[in-house]
Amino acid sequence: MDTGTRPAPGPRPFEPVEVRLPGHAPVWGVGSAETMSVWREMTPDGMYGRAAARLRPGDRVLDIGANVGLASVFFHDVQPGITTVAVEPAPDLYACLQANLAAHVPGSRAVRAAVTDRVGHSRFVYYPNAPSNSGLHTDPVTDDALTRRYLENSGVEEEFIEMVLEGLHDGVSLEVPTLTVSTLLRERPYGDIALLKVDVERAELEVLRGVEAADWPRIGEVVAEVHDEGGRLDACCDLLRAQGFHISVDQDPALAGTELYEIEARRA
């Protein structure tokens, strides 16, 4: 059966693309359209904007599934006194992440790994044409359907949707190191984490299960994009409530009719 995944090719040169965001200094990305699409999520009235507004000088953010680091850049734009530990397994995205942290989030650190509930190595599928949809649990058919619904909700015509979807989720299989949140917290004396941000394409519950009981009190807030398949949304909410968080769940209107939701979990 064709899973849409091919073996990893040999080494190839990668050159980040400089992308000029509206009203912002240039950032590095794997492509202009992809970078702009991710940046559009960074709005003052969205989940990330609300979380950024609650950050204070000296706070530390743990950015899991950092992509090229635009959420970390945005958080620092809103509150320049923060630092970030940003984690991303895909080599091309990680190269951009390093450059963006160095340019825009001083004192922060990039880590190349996937975060899950165990330490080791795992298969990771990278979508060169849709990097933000890459992950440990990719499903090209479902990913096509989600993208289709998003484009339909955005008013894009069917003919153009078919063009966009052609080869969009053809993947490259990589082996990547895996860590847990608690492993990261033990690795260096990071102190408390004001905000844990999770965007990991169907591995959300695994990330949360990788936080050991003793480490939960060190985490002040969680924001996560969750694919609600097989009861994952309820399981994430139940886990967070058990750790003393108050939960709110929302869905971007552009994603209505999909399984993608947003969780904001805050301490009382």
Rank of each mutant, 00 (worst) to 15 (best):
D2L: 07
T3C: 11
G4N: 08
T5M: 13
R6C: 03
P9Y: 03
P11Q: 04
R12F: 12
E15A: 15
E18C: 11
V19L: 10
P22M: 07
G23Y: 06
P26E: 11
G29Y: 01
G29K: 00
T35K: 01
M36V: 01
M36R: 13
P44Y: 09
D45M: 09
G46H: 00
G46D: 11
G46A: 14
A53P: 06
L55V: 05
R56A: 08
G58I: 10
G58H: 09
L62R: 03
D63S: 11
A66F: 14
A71K: 02
F74D: 03
Q79F: 00
T83D: 10
V85Y: 00
A90F: 05
Y94I: 05
N100S: 10
L101D: 00
L101C: 05
A102V: 03
A103F: 04
V105E: 02
V111N: 00
V111C: 04
R112K: 14
R118Q: 13
G120D: 09
S122L: 09
S122Y: 09
V125W: 02
V125G: 01
V125Y: 04
Y127V: 02
S134R: 09
G135Y: 02
D139E: 13
P140R: 15
P140T: 08
V141N: 12
D144F: 00
R148E: 15
R149S: 03
Y150M: 12
L151I: 04
L151G: 00
N153Q: 13
N153M: 06
V156E: 12
E162A: 14
E162I: 00
M163E: 14
V164Y: 12
L165S: 09
D170L: 10
V172P: 04
S173C: 09
L174Y: 11
P177L: 04
P177D: 06
L179Y: 03
T183H: 14
R186H: 13
A194Q: 06
A194N: 03
L195F: 05
K197C: 03
V198M: 03
D199M: 08
E204P: 00
E204W: 06
L208Y: 06
R209T: 04
V211Y: 08
A213E: 08
D215H: 14
I219C: 03
A224Y: 07
E225Y: 04
E225Q: 13
H227E: 15
D228C: 09
E229V: 15
G230D: 14
G231C: 12
A235D: 10
A242F: 02
G244N: 08
Q251I: 03
D252N: 15
A254V: 11
A254I: 07
L255D: 08
L255I: 09
A256N: 13
L260Q: 05
I263W: 07
I263L: 07
R266Q: 13
A268G: 08
